[in-house]
Computed example of a mutant assay.
Amino acid sequence: MVPQTGPAVWVAADLTAADWMVPVGTEEAHELEAALTAAEAAAPVPPLARLAPILTDVTARLNTGRGFCLLRGLPFDRHGATAAEAALLALGQHLGTPLNGQDSPVSRLIGVPPGELGPASGTPRFHIEACDAIALLCLVNGPAAPVHVLVSAGAVHNEVMRRDRAALAELYAPAPLLEDGESVERAVFTMTEGAFAARYTRHAVEEAAAAPQPGAPPLPAGLRPAFDLLDSVCAEPALLLRLEPRPGDLLLFNPHLVWKRRTLAEAPAEAPETAQEFRRLRITMRHSRRTVAEPG
């Protein structure tokens, strides 16, 4: 257990928009416009050659930079949801390998009241998908929509270390949890071959403790207090970066370095449009903290 350092360890006051906003030029916007037009006409999406260097930069930002970025200025919201989904998938294929969901790699997310997202304990829920990047495309975001909150997992780690090293040790120890209905073991923080990775899993651990599998080890006595401290740190205003996505914005983040609070939930594709419409794409990359820091 050592303090984490590097660009992905930040607090909100450290950052300006220049740290996370990726500039998009007119030619790149025109290229995506052509891709959207083709998708709207049910034609193949043309290669995104001009966007490719920007997407290479995005990959570096996610893996070795701040851990997140936002693309603004692309016309994702001008040709309908179906075309936007096809263009998002084409863009994701430049970053890595999109992961399939239940029906399609691109999932529809809508806004829901905050009380419907978290467990009964009221602790925050974060995106913890087993992937290397999550892309959230904003199509509609009404004026009453909640802000999107990001926090650096490395900064959270360091603050927990500063307050209580014993609690941090609990968060480095694997604990039983339920994932996709199966019992597995995973620590919140891992460090393997120099690669730091973090996954916030309290609700999954508590679900496993409430319905233990035969022969499963009991929940360590010090883990709940450690989770309580982690929740307290994750609520520190100084650590939290608040973003208000606009229609057409594409937010990308590495969930092993940056935790994003959930303000959205999956919805059926055929459900009526709402005041908040996002599309999510999960991506694996060639150089994955998930596979390095979680062997096997």
Rank of each mutant, 00 (worst) to 15 (best):
E170F: 08
G142A: 15
W259R: 00
L36G: 09
R162G: 08
A41K: 14
R72P: 01
T284Q: 02
L137D: 04
V233A: 08
Q102P: 11
E236I: 12
L241C: 11
P295Q: 07
Q276Y: 13
I54K: 11
R186I: 15
I283F: 10
A209L: 02
R66F: 01
A293P: 05
L230M: 12
A198D: 05
L117N: 10
Y172N: 13
L251C: 01
T97I: 00
P247M: 01
M191G: 15
P268A: 13
L99R: 08
E179Y: 06
A120Q: 14
W20Y: 15
D77G: 05
P146E: 07
T123E: 13
V45P: 04
A195S: 12
M191Q: 15
A135T: 11
E85Y: 00
L251F: 04
A29I: 06
P114T: 10
A208H: 09
G122L: 02
S288D: 01
V9C: 06
P44N: 10
R261H: 12
L74S: 02
T97Y: 03
P105D: 13
V184M: 12
L168N: 05
R50D: 13
F68A: 02
W259E: 00
A43G: 12
R78I: 04
V9H: 08
P212F: 08
V184K: 09
A275M: 12
A167I: 08
V24Y: 03
G115T: 04
C234F: 04
P268R: 07
L250W: 02
G154T: 11
A197Q: 08
S107G: 07
I134D: 01
L91V: 14
N100D: 14
R61Q: 15
S232Q: 14
A204K: 10
D57H: 11
P212T: 09
A198M: 10
P143N: 04
H30P: 10
A155T: 05
P295K: 05
R61G: 12
Q102M: 08
T263V: 11
L177V: 10
A265P: 03
S232L: 09
L74P: 06
P113A: 14
H148A: 07
A209Q: 02
R280H: 04
A86H: 01
V233T: 07
Y200N: 06
A130I: 01
R282E: 10
P220Q: 15
S232M: 09
E40L: 02
A17V: 09
F196G: 07
A60C: 09
E207T: 12
A187P: 07
W259P: 00
R186M: 15
G248R: 01
A195I: 09
P174L: 10
A209H: 05
H79V: 08
C138Y: 00
A52N: 11
E266F: 15
L230Q: 13
L264N: 03
P53G: 12
